[in-house]
Structures are given as C-alpha cells and as structure tokens.
Amino acid sequence: MDTEVVVVGSGVIGLTTALTLARRGYRVRVWTREPAEETTSAVAGALWWPYRIEPEERAGPWSLESLAEYVRLAGRPEETGVRMVPGVHEGVRPGALGAWSREVPGLRAAREEECPGGGLWARLPLVDMPVHLRWLTDRLAEAGGTVERREVRALDEASARAPVVVNCTGLGARSLVPDPSVRPVRGQLVLVENPGIDTWYVATEGHSAAPAYFFPHPDRLVLGGTAEEDAWSTEPDPAIAAAIVRRCARVRPEIAGARILGHRVGLRPARSAVRIEAERRADGSLLVHHYGHGGAGVTVAWGCAREAADLVTDAG
C-alpha cells in the first residue's frame, strides 16, 4: 500500500489506530507532544466498560469488538497488560443496559453476598495502562511504524508532510480543529498498596461527579474517582483524595489503612458524540478526525480504530 499516514496523538486511541493502519500496510508515523506514558490514557483505571460515551448505538459495537481483542490479549497479561478480572458494578440492573450487554459473556445479576446493594457481576478486561501503552508502541515499531516527539500547533503541519492525517488528539482537538464541543471531565485517582483485594468494584451512580471504584493491578490498587465536568486542573486535590479513600473504604475497610503510593489526575476528552469522520482538504489530502471518546477510550479503542482505518482505506 505504501501510503504515508501521520497519526497525531499517542494515547490509547492514537496508538491503537496507528497500529491498525500499520498492520494494513501503511507507513505510519505518530506525532506526539508527550510520550504515551504521560498521556491521559496512562492515568486510566482501566476497566472495560462503556462509560460516558455516545452515541450508544455505535459505542456498543465498538466496545464489543474491543472486548474480543482484549480477551485474546489477556492470554499474555505480563506482555500486554490485559487481565480478565471479576468484579461487581453496584446499583446497575441488567435490563438498564443497552443491547451490547447481552453479548458480554457471563454478565449477570450479582448475588447478595457478592454485592449486598444489588448490581451486576462480570469478569471483564482490566488493563494496566503503562504496560499496555508500551506493548502498543512496541507492536507499532514491529509493524514498521514510528513515534516522534513533536508538538503540533496546526493540523496543516501534518498535512504538509503526509497525504493522510488522523487526528487522535483527544482534548487537544478543542483548539486544533477547533472544536469547542470537546470538554474536559476531570478524573482524580489514588494509588495505594493492595491490601489483598483481587476483585474490582464500581459504583458510578449515573454521571455522578463523585463515583467510587477500585481496580486491583499487579503492583497497586487504583482508587477513584471523580468526574468533574469542565474542570481543567491536573493537580491532585488532597481533600478529594481523602474523600476517594473514604468512599472506597466504606466498601472494603482494609483500604483505609493501605499505604498511599501516589496520586494521578487525567482529563477525559468528553463530547456529545465520538467523532470519526473523514474530510478531504483543499490540497487533496485526507484528514480523518477520531476523538471525543470521553471516559471509554480504552473500552472502544479497537473497534474505533478499525472504523477510522476503514475511512482511510475506503478513501483510497
């Protein structure tokens, strides 16, 4: 195929899209202002679940396609960072979810001893994002792609260097496109030593600004969280951190005494609907927009990457 493509952005959306294109034979370069380990994706929890993403009728199929890929990757957890982990989603009933939920193997109503408040039980992919981002970067290199540290101030810079550009800039699309409908939803996390917890727990209460969840990873327990709309600060707030620990400790009291390892803040790139759209520019170049995944970038990454790559392929 030998067409050159520049993918702008090195979060999970950018890297997964770049890898998908490279595996189709495109010559792919990723341009990124910061390395993958410093992106919002690196901060993610990251449990597979269609959270804060629209439109639901498209997010469901994207999520299921990604689920199938993560199940395969979970066979090599040390390499890929993906493990299948059981847990409960408190307060959610099976009938309240979209059609996608009927395709999730093993998803069922939680038993009383599993979740006294009622909810769902499922065994889902839980992704150690620093490991997974390294895996994506390594697979991209194996497929012939490269990652370049470069701050992009205008998408025209990329179009001047390649006939195809894929805009995976997340919140950066707000100024680069520009698209003011992309808004931050601030998420704060607390990392603690794991006191022996091996299941995940989520209680989001819809789009509450103060959800409670914890995710067990090999070297830490990730506690969350927040969902503060239009909040731009990336500095951890000590009062919020303390409240996160208290909320999680109400579910598992042993969390209260766990040693704190660190704090993380990420800004989810929310939009009324994900934008995956091709635009033929005046100079003949192709620009594919691929952003606005909110809190579900990991969940839909592979399905959305295929759709974005299809737009490149179909444009010839």
Rank of each mutant, 00 (worst) to 15 (best):
M1H: 09
T3I: 09
E4D: 15
V6Q: 10
V6I: 15
V8Y: 09
G9Y: 09
I13S: 12
G14K: 10
A18K: 11
L21G: 10
L21N: 09
P35V: 10
A36E: 13
S41W: 04
S41H: 04
A42H: 10
A42N: 15
A44K: 04
A46F: 01
P50M: 03
P50H: 03
P50I: 05
Y51K: 05
I53C: 12
E56Y: 02
W62Y: 11
L67R: 04
A68G: 12
Y70G: 02
L73P: 00
L73Q: 07
A74R: 00
G75N: 00
G75C: 00
E78A: 15
E79Q: 07
V85Q: 00
G87A: 02
E90D: 02
G98S: 01
W100M: 12
S101M: 08
V104S: 07
P105N: 03
E113V: 12
E113N: 06
G119T: 03
W121A: 08
M129Y: 07
M129P: 07
V131N: 04
H132I: 04
D138P: 00
A141T: 14
A143Y: 08
A154T: 15
V164L: 06
T169P: 10
G170L: 13
G170P: 07
G170W: 09
L171V: 14
G172L: 13
V182S: 13
P184H: 10
R186W: 10
G187N: 11
Q188L: 13
L191A: 12
L191V: 11
E193L: 05
V202D: 06
T204M: 08
P211N: 10
A212E: 06
A212C: 12
F215Q: 03
G224D: 09
A227K: 14
E229A: 15
E235P: 00
D237S: 14
A241M: 02
I244L: 04
C248L: 06
R252Y: 07
A258P: 12
G266Y: 04
R268I: 13
R271T: 07
V274A: 14
A278N: 02
R281M: 13
D283N: 14
S285W: 01
L286F: 08
V288E: 02
G294Q: 03
G297W: 04
A309S: 15
D314M: 04
A315K: 05
